[in-house]
Design a protein around this nucleic acid. Structure first.
Lengths: 341, 341
DNA sequence: CTGTTAGCGCGTTCAA
DNA sequence: TTGAACGCGCTAACAG
């Protein structure tokens, strides 16, 4: 009864050709209103569903687009994905998600997988700076499969990206700590071979310099992006002869770990030590000791990345548009860094 | 150079037929070792990639499976998805994710979308109890497209599900509160038309009865699953003539809102009021006032759901296997409900 | 306005 | 062991 219904089935029933059915279904102009009506009704009653696969095979387009993120279970990334979906679904695109787990090899697999699945484009946040990526991206450019980076990008000619101004974010966070009276500000940087973390670090560094404070190598660590890493970093920092009185962390999770370790040692926040994180993960807000953090407006980032992709395909691949959208970061000041004035 | 390479291209190069190329690539037995070797080398050098779309059109299988969850940005669901991926990727399946946003109509769209995309199966957690679902699921059964429920299921003959024992979870949480000396335990239930919430409620109710405590309708609210709803619920509960001294919430987010509201009003937790949540979201653990919660082992749930799906397709649709896997919940006791003895 | 034909890329008959 | 032909379901080109 509900076996696969094709346009041939409905053509047969109506004693017309499959092509006519196709035209009726696709709102072609070259068809009479009556037959169109007939076809539509028949299709409805027979519970016809278009086979997207055949369409994809025919058109060379799958209407699927791939999204690659390091981790799906970070609010930042899941929110970006929501933004992408909200923008793309109305245009008939579906989103296939892969996780790179910040692993180069896994990321390579993700791209291959998606390309095998014949996606019409890839929106991604890179796991790391890899040379492998170069050749695969060259292939994509030749095949005219758009790739759009969000958040973590690579600078590749012809490819668009949507990022925030991470330098500015790092600068704002550090300036805020300085304004609060912190003199010895440490920085926990994650992996500075990735542009965003490098930029945040540079923002931090230049804010120090611009304010006449010393930049100190010993105050900067690269860590994993998790709670434990934050705890470890604090342990190391407090062992220094002249320990810091504040931390600007490029990761909220690291910031959280730092806060936990500091409190465990009886250090008062924010009176004796201030902490600022990055990403504005929801938990930073609802902790009793809420953590200041830099918001990256992930929903907008996702939506804009999707829009950039749509413009790319709209141009039919003839016009190469390379957009570099840079969003403004927004520092949310909370208890962890706000000394009562 | 890297235009689309088909088996015809490599057939032409080798002066053989496309069929032979196909055979070589698919490890057919009916081919000589030499030609196979030749084909494999040529394919490699020409950077041939199989067109999965054509394969899917031909075989009727896409190697994509759809996953539908209410929200992607809940750690519980994103972890389930990770479990599904970890289990399914090695078998060549890719995962397409859709969000139903707990909306019936949207959920209906998700299923249609996925079926249109010719997925080989759907793993889902339902948004609500809908009659629409029945007919669409009947179609899937006829078409022999497996559907597996996880967490939020519907009881439909022939369909498998992976859930936890929510009744037991509710019972454990409530028993724990009773053991801590709480006498008047309220329950925040989300939507009891959904089985899991009904079961948790029943576990709560029977724990009360089994311990000789009164069950009181006025102590049970249905709320949305967010922080604000928790705050509102507490406001209402505290207005009662004889207010409760504990809350068992079916949602961690609601529990968090409740805790926030209670503390805002200067009520001591856990001394004067205990709170237990459900889902074991990460934040429950790292709050300074950590919240007790019932863990649902989402990673296992995802993996098992995937395994159930794999067994289903392995049987080739001939054998109907209906599995109802029920995992054990695990209560994690934290500060919000542990009175110092 | 409608029908016929062809082809998207693949696997799988049926012959040879 | 290999090749030619076909069909999966659809749309686009060309006729009529």
């Amino acid at each position: 009864m509900s076996e696969k219904i094709t346009i041939y089935d409905i053509a047969e029933k109506l004693n017309i050709s499959a092509a006519t059915v196709s035209r009726a279904l696709n709102n072609s102009s070259k068809i009479s209103a009556t037959t169109r009506q007939l076809v539509l009704e028949a299709a409805e009653s027979m519970n016809y569903k278009q086979n997207k696969l055949a369409l994809a095979l025919k058109s060379g387009r799958s209407n699927n687009i791939g999204v690659i993120v390091p981790h799906i279970n970070r609010n930042f990334f899941s929110t970006i994905i929501r933004g992408i979906e909200e923008e793309l679904n109305p245009h008939g695109y579906h989103v296939i998600i892969c996780q790179s787990y910040n692993d180069e090899a896994k990321e390579f697999e993700c791209i291959s997988t998606l390309l095998n699945a014949q996606v019409d484009g890839i929106l991604m946040s890179i796991a790391s700076v890899t040379t492998h990526l170069d050749q695969i991206i060259n292939n994509m450019i030749k095949k005219e499969i758009p790739m759009v980076f969000f958040d973590r990008k690579k600078n590749i000619e012809g490819l668009s990206s949507v990022t925030i101004n991470d330098y500015e974010g790092g600068y704002q966070a550090t300036q805020h700590l300085i304004n609060e009276g912190c003199k010895k500000i440490a920085h926990l940087a994650v992996d500075r071979s990735i542009e965003i973390y490098k930029d945040r670090f540079n923002g931090y560094k230049h804010a120090l310099i611009d304010n006449g404070l010393d930049y100190n190598d010993k105050f900067v660590f690269e860590t994993k992006s998790n709670i434990e890493a934050g705890k470890e970093a604090v342990k190391k920092l407090l062992k220094l002869k002249n320990p810091p009185d504040a931390i600007f962390s490029s990761s909220d999770w690291v910031a959280l770990g730092a806060v936990q370790e500091l409190r465990e040692r009886g250090i008062n926040i924010p009176e004796d030590f201030c902490v600022v994180g990055f990403s504005n993960e929801p938990f930073t807000k609802f902790l009793e000791l809420s953590i200041s953090s830099v918001d990256q407006s992930p929903l907008d980032m996702g939506k804009i990345a999707a829009k950039v992709f749509l413009e790319q395909v709209k141009e039919g691949g003839n016009v190469k548009i390379e957009q570099k959208v840079i969003l403004a970061p927004k520092l949310h000041i909370r208890k962890s860094s706000l000394k009562t004035k």
